[in-house]
Amino acid sequence: MDIPFTTKARPDTGLYNAKLGIWLFLASEVMLFGAFFSAYILLRVGADPGAWAHGLMNVPIGTFNTFVLILSSVTVVMAWAALKAHNYSLYRNCMVITIACALGFLVVKSFEYAEKFRHYEVWMKDGRRMTGHIDYEDGGVKKHAYLWSTKTLSKKKIESIAFTPDAPNEWATGQYYPPLTKEQLEHVKKHADSDTHHHEPIAIKSADIQRLSAFVPAHSTFFAIYFTMTALHGLHVLGGAIVLSFFLFRGHKMWKADPDRLTNRIEVGGLFWHFVDLVWIFLFPVMYIL
């Protein structure tokens, strides 16, 4: 027995089965991401002064990834339009670009995550806070420290670390993250016109460190919600890429047997893909810019 309305629209709803199904699914997704965005707003509004990790994201990389996803949405629509025009080879080419964009997004995101895992904030016992990188030597080879914490210092019995501080991060006029002490602020103002920051590593004794954390979820509320939301989004990108790859590699057989069915499936896949990209369009300014 054939399942009705897999290609033709039901007369009462005006939709074929899969389109109704994907919109119900996307409604549940809106609720999922909506809950996370609401949580983000409440956490941010309720954050203590100086606790919200402002301006630590790499905006050029985020912007690049945003336009990669916008391009992928354009190509997935072109793939669907190509099938509507019975041009299978154009469909295939557009789909290849879409999947390449998805994988490119994930690769860039993984490099961005890795950079966060070797970027640190140190809270000193005298009240100073700095962000920067830690390098160490292992058998004469210089290495970056990944995912160290205060516990790592005591566990590995490290007496001091070579910490390369970042330049003060002015995320808005006169506002810095991490917050500067009075002396640090005066120093920054004094040297505002001359770039005297040489990024030289400084030795910090472990005994002077109150807390050390990489930019991981445990660092702060900001990074907890950042990793939760971007990882969830990344999983959606991966899922979408797998489904679209299936249509790319196994679509020809269906195209020969039932072209309308493949066209509808690409439309449904494209609707999901647009939703995933739309989530990023909101995530990017919220996490990187505002």
């Binding site: 949405s73 669907w80 439309e267 494209g270 609707l271 647009h274 990209d277 810019i289």
Partner: peptide
């Protein structure tokens, strides 16, 4: 349809670009 969703997506992308 995907066409309507794509138009909304492009409109939101324009707003994002202007915001940026």
């Amino acid at each position: 349809s995907l066409k309507a969703f794509h138009i909304i997506f492009v409109a939101v992308s324009v707003l994002l670009s202007l915001g940026l």
